[in-house]
Each structure stands twice: as C-alpha cells, then as structure tokens.
Amino acid sequence: MTPVSIAFVAVFFLLLLVAVKPFGLYMANVMEGRPIWPLRVGARFEAFIYRLCGIDPDAQMGWKRYAIALLIFNTLGVIFVYALQRAQAWLPLNPQQFTNVSADSSFNTAVSFVTNTNWQGYSGESTMSYLTQMAGLAVQNFLSAASGIVVAIALIRGFARHSASTIGNVWTDLTRSTLYILLPLALLLALLLVGQGVVQNFSGYKDVSTIETLSYQNPKVDAGGNPIKDAAGNPVTEPATTQKQTLPMGPIASQESIKELGTNGGGFLNANSAHPYENPTALSNFLELFAILLIPMGLTYTFGRMVGDTRQGWAVFAAMTILFLPLVGLGTYSEQQGNPLIGKLGVDQTASALQPGGNMEGKESRFGIGASALFASVTTVTSCGAVNTMHDSLTPLGGFVPLFQMQLGEVVFGGVGTGLYSMLIFAIVGVFIAGLMIGRTPEYLGKKIEAFEIKMSSIAILVMPFIVLAGTAVAVSVAAGKAGVANPGAHGFSEILYAFSSAGNNNGSAFGGLSANTPFYNIALGLTMWFGRFWPIVAVLAIAGSLAAKKRVPVTAGTMLTYGPTFVILLIGTVLLVGALTFVPALALGPIVEHLTLWGA
C-alpha cells in the first residue's frame, strides 16, 4: 500500500467516524417519532400521506402483521416495476424509443431493485426509458432501502420493549425513514454530484463524431445474447469500425445519490460509478464512498441509543471496523502488487510520482489503485454493489476480498438496515455459544435467548449460504449455466460463484465476464435474490416479536457484558467461523486456486 492509499482510507474513515454519532442520533429521533424540527416541519405532509393511504399512524402491529404488510408492499413493487418495463415503449419519457424489456429480464430487474440487490443483467443506457429509470428503479432504490431500515428498527424495538405484543407500525416506519432520512440526504447529495459534473437532464442522447475512426473487435453473440465460442472455448469476434460516439444523457445524478445512500448500487449507466457521467471526479468518488457507509454506520449508534445504552452500539461498530479495515488493506495491497506475469515481461509496476503502479486493468486512471480498491471493499461489505472498477479485472486476491465480504453475510456495516440486523443475529448466536461455554442461560440486552430465537437465527443465517451454494452448483452443472461463461476454468467458476453470492446477499455487483442476461440466469438469480432478502427478514421479524414479548432480565454479577472487548472478539469470531467454514471450500476452487496458479507460474 502506498502512503497516499493509507492516508486516503484514514481520512475517509475518520470523517465517517465523526458523522456516526450525530447522524445515528438523528435517525433514532426520527424512528422514535420525537418532535425534532424536521418532523415538525413535515408533520402536515406526513399526516396527508396517512390520510391518503388510509393509515392509522398510532396503530401498532405484531410481528406477523408487520412482516406480511412489508411483504405485500414489496410484492406490489415487484409487479409495478415488472409492468413498467413491459410497457415502457408505449409510455412517455422514452426519447430513445427503447422497446419493451423482455419478460425474463423484467422479472429479474423488478425483483433485483425491490430486494435492494440492483443486479443488472441489462445495460441501462440501451435498455431503460427515463420513466422506467425514475418511476420504477429510482423509486425502489428509496423503498427497498426504507424496507431494510424498518426491519432493523423493528428488531431494535424487540430488544428495547418488554412484555409487549407489538414491534411498531410498518407504514409510519417506511414513511418516516423515506421522508426524513433518505429523501433529504438524496437531494443534498444529488446537488453535490451535479456540482461535480454528474449529468441531470431529460435530453435525448447526443451523437458526436470522433476525431479518428475507431477499429475494434466486436464479440459475436447468438440470438439469446450468449457469446459464440470457437472449438477452444475462446470468444469469437469480428472486426468493426465506427466514427460515431453516442453520449448518454438523462436524470443520472438523482438516481446516483440514492443508489449510494440506499446501498442499492444499480447504475443508470452500464459502467456504473466507473462512468464519468456517474462519477466524474476524485471528490465525487469520495462523496459516493461516504454516502454508501453513512447510514449503515450511523445505524449502529441508532441501535445503542434506542436500546438505552450507546456502548452496545459502539461494540457492534467496533466489531465491524475490526473486520473491515484488514480486508480493505488486503484488497489494496493485492492490487498494488500487480500481476507477476506482466512484471516478468519487464513492465514497471511500482508506484511513483508518474504512475499508480500495480494492477490498473479495469480501473479508472482518475481514481487509481487506492480509491478503486477501497470502493470495491466498501461496495461489498455493504449491500451496495456499485462499482468504480471492474471486479473481473481485480487480481485473484483482490477479487477474493469482495467475494468473501459478501459471503460473510454483509454484516460489516452491511446494507442500510440489513447490515445491522444481520450483525445482531450473529450477536444472538454469539451470546448463545458463550452461554453454552459458561453454562448460563444466554442473555442479550436483558433478554433471555431461548430455543425460538436460536431457531430463527439459524434460519436467518443459513438461508443465504444454502441458496448461494446450491445455485452455484446447479449453474456449473447445467448447459444453460455454463453457456454464459466467457472465461473457462477457475476464473469462470469465480464468476458464477460471485453472481450467486451477489444475488443471495442482495449486493448486485458483478464479476463481469458472465453473460447473465439469459432466461436461465434471469430466473435463477431472481429467485435467489427474493429468498435471500425476504426469508431472513421474516425470521428476523419473528425474533423481534419474540423478544418484545419477553420481560427484561436485571443485570447481575453473572451477566455477560456485551459492550466489552470480550464480546467484540466473540462477535468477530462468530462471523468469521460461520462465513469461513461455509464458503472456504468454494473459494478454494475459485480465487484461491487462481492466486496460487498465478504466483506459482
């Protein structure tokens, strides 16, 4: 790692650290409905929304009602986004006159955006009308983020309440998190991004003539969009030339801001945050990185505040930080090392005042190694999935880092809401294991952890590895799954494993190299995204309901402290053991064998 990379990470993390307490406190006040000035200003509009939708904001819900209301809300979202894509050719705000999206791609995209995954099998600038981008995809960026926040808040209420049969009102939670947290931040960030040069208009695309004729090799694809390969398995290409370049336009900044804040990650443009119209400068890159982690980090303080002991929130924050920073270091170090095969050809890969050195394949020169590797880490410890570098071009160990981070369950800060509630599930399992070791009934935050909570935690934790590994196994076994692989061997396996890890964890980033816009992958990944999102949510809400009904156990000399170093180590150990033991065999077949092959050559 270069001193510049280290300084960049240090400044970035310190600025976030400064924001955690005030922003976490603000979110706690919003979700508890305290009369702070934004809620007083918005009270009339909020009341209007409730009247319009026939909502009684004072009605409280049990966990089942809360879960089913959230499920219905999200299912209607899937149907709406699906219908919008299937009808976009006949609807306004379609200056490029895009045709309707295919049925299987519409299904995949609808599930993808509602589940906060934002996996994109399509290319935004050549597929989606402005109406679909705004009314379908951007709206779901807000609502899926709000859905994650409300589940985390419901679980926190489970700890905070006692002898209660309810965990809140899902409609007021969704409304407040959208209205007072996501919307103002998204508006502010969109304006800052426009200031940096991110495009925001409704113009049609602009055609410009290039100075020279561009010659390139165009990959041939069959009618299904799959790459055609020769007998050796290499992609078949044909020579092509062009003198025209089409510049995409559209309401990009407004979508870009919530894409990062809501840890959604779905780019308006295919190149995502690597595209200069989404992420033009070093400062815009910094703002986007900051936005991705702001809410997940702040929620740890919100948690501590709402349970009445901020030390509990800081303990969770500490565990996340200890997991986060070494992985950032490994990713950056690996990319800075470069490719030994290129080094053997005499190419200088050392960093200097004139070059960033290391592995710059797939990276933007305006970001360099440090900001690219940090982005790859930040986007995969959270459920964001936005990319400013092509993950397929990372070194084997550099690619291992994002893959492993997703497979840990995205609990290191994680997605908005999802990261916190997933980490709290690991905390429940951790205190259970500790209870077994010392022979006491496990407790967490004054609530006894009993058989029901452990059953639900097991479901919440095991759904993801099951669907990811089973999906990968099916994809590498059937012809339709193997057809989309452009790089046979260990790297091709990594591409498929990455796709299912990304879908199952609702991340949405792609390793590239895999042609996933096929009926097989659209349906398989669509199912993976749905079950990876909502089955753990149901189990988490069941835990929230169960905990809320319990009495608070007084703290005694035998109570295990859940804010000290011992608990932090226990939590980290639980996360690593579950994540590592589940996925190491699969990782060994992909990035690890690739690393050994590369460096042993």
């Binding site: 049990g62 966990w63 089942k64 879960a67 089913i68 499920l71 219905i72 299912t75 899937v78 149907i79 699906y82 299937r86 049925a103 299987d104 519409s106 299904f107 609808a110 599930v111 049969s165 058989a451 029901f452 059953k455 639900m456 479901i459 349906i523 199912l527 749905w530 079950f531 909502f534 089955w535 149901v538 189990a539 069941a542 835990i543 309901g545 169960s546 809320a548 009904a549």
Partner: peptide, 30 residues
C-alpha cells in the same frame, strides 16, 4: 409469458407468506 412471470411473483409472495405462518407455529409469539 407475462402471466407466467406474474404468477411466479405471486408464488414467491405465497412461499414467503407461508414461511411467516410456519415460523409462527414454531413458538414465540403470534
């Protein structure tokens, strides 16, 4: 084709609704 995918979305909802019901039968609170 659209009907098939809409039915698939409804089936995904139904499967998750069923899970909610099944988990509530395991214990905890209603």
């Amino acid at each position: 084709m659209d009907l098939i995918f809409i039915l698939m979305i409804v089936a995904l909802y139904a499967a998750t609704h069923w899970l909610t019901w099944a988990l509530s039968r395991l214990g905890g609170v209603e």
